[in-house]
Design a protein around this nucleic acid. Sequence first.
DNA 1: CGCCCGGCGTGACAAATGTCACTGGCATAG
DNA 2: CTATGCCAGTGACATTTGTCACGCCGGGCG
Lengths: 215, 215
Amino acid sequence: MSGAPAGAVESDAARGIRLMIADDEHLIRGALVALLNLEPDIEVVAHADNGVAAVEQAIAARPDVCLLDLEMPGADGIEAAARILAQVSTRVVIVTRHARPGVLRRALASKVSGFVPKSTPAEELAHVIRDVAGGRRYIDPEIAAAALTAERCPLTDRELDALRFSRGAMSVQQIAERLHLAQGTVRNYLSSAMTKLDATSRHDAAEKAWQQGWI
Amino acid sequence: MSGAPAGAVESDAARGIRLMIADDEHLIRGALVALLNLEPDIEVVAHADNGVAAVEQAIAARPDVCLLDLEMPGADGIEAAARILAQVSTRVVIVTRHARPGVLRRALASKVSGFVPKSTPAEELAHVIRDVAGGRRYIDPEIAAAALTAERCPLTDRELDALRFSRGAMSVQQIAERLHLAQGTVRNYLSSAMTKLDATSRHDAAEKAWQQGWI
DNA sequence: CGCCCGGCGTGACAAATGTCACTGGCATAG
DNA sequence: CTATGCCAGTGACATTTGTCACGCCGGGCG
């Protein structure tokens, strides 16, 4: 928000990583801003409290690195990352509370450079930011391992389709219309998915599949 | 963790508020510890990443103020607060992501002194801690207003009974047995509760009632 | 080729769930 | 006293959900 210093300093100036922070929780955002500003080689040049604002801020401030929370109103971190990277030459680090394997895959598909859970020690974060600013990538080893270990999804394509719509409280009727199928068919897929996932209701199944990052 | 300085300094020494911080997210806990330690009159003397550890730490370190996250594994913030206050002469501030009226009521019933959402600006937090250390109370005005505005629970006793069991996935059949009622009766209470709470399923209703602190 | 297997798709059926109309008790206002 | 309203309690009914047995198709395999 503070005006850029007079003209010439470009983003790849030798000293100082220009950082943007986006997190919807004021307390945490404030703490991170203050904390990272203490690092001698990091300068927080912008911050936002939702995905849409994050994109605007990134375009305006052109930071070297963007630190995005995954869970944000408006546009989630990955969506914001995709939009930012499409328009600005920068690198993105995603921070998340619920680090599921599938999310990591989505994130990597959006070309983010870093992926860390909020269980990361604070000191480590500055380290990651420097790595990423230097052109390297950083993926939290725990999550990476989980993503690679994760058993292949046992669900069939159509089962996944049906499950996808089951989140967000659509009725079987509505799902059937949406997929151009008979109600019984949809129920069948859902039932089958429930069996495979050992769930007691389709909401439960959808939840579990989501946790695994399969939908 | 660090050993206490030689003997005599007691917790009500004139200078310095001894603070404990509990939050299960390492990143946030670390940021808060660092940030609040920067305040000249605050000293972070312990921290924990779950409710049980928080109680132990509080007993061991005897801080002046405990800052507890509401959402923690083990024991949630309010439970931890109750246990701490039963054994240590200290004051508790609860910090939470989802600030719902009912939670505030539960918290106050446990004699906590402060209640703030994570949307609080970071600068404000130190202020709150000083207030509380000084024996005053601080309740986030937004939440307080919401709690006072919140209409009285519209549910009848039996509806509440039925809802209580509906959390934890008991079937109508089982609830009926447990309450010595006919299944139809239970369904009726549940249905009525759903209408009153504008919910689409009994789980939904139970969830909403819980959110409000009614069960 | 003939066979079997796995995924897709369907309808019939049963159980669980939610809605409704109704009875009776009890308190309270008129 | 009577009327009114609220809550407890019940069963009949409609809807939704989950399970099953089945038919169809395409792709390996003996």
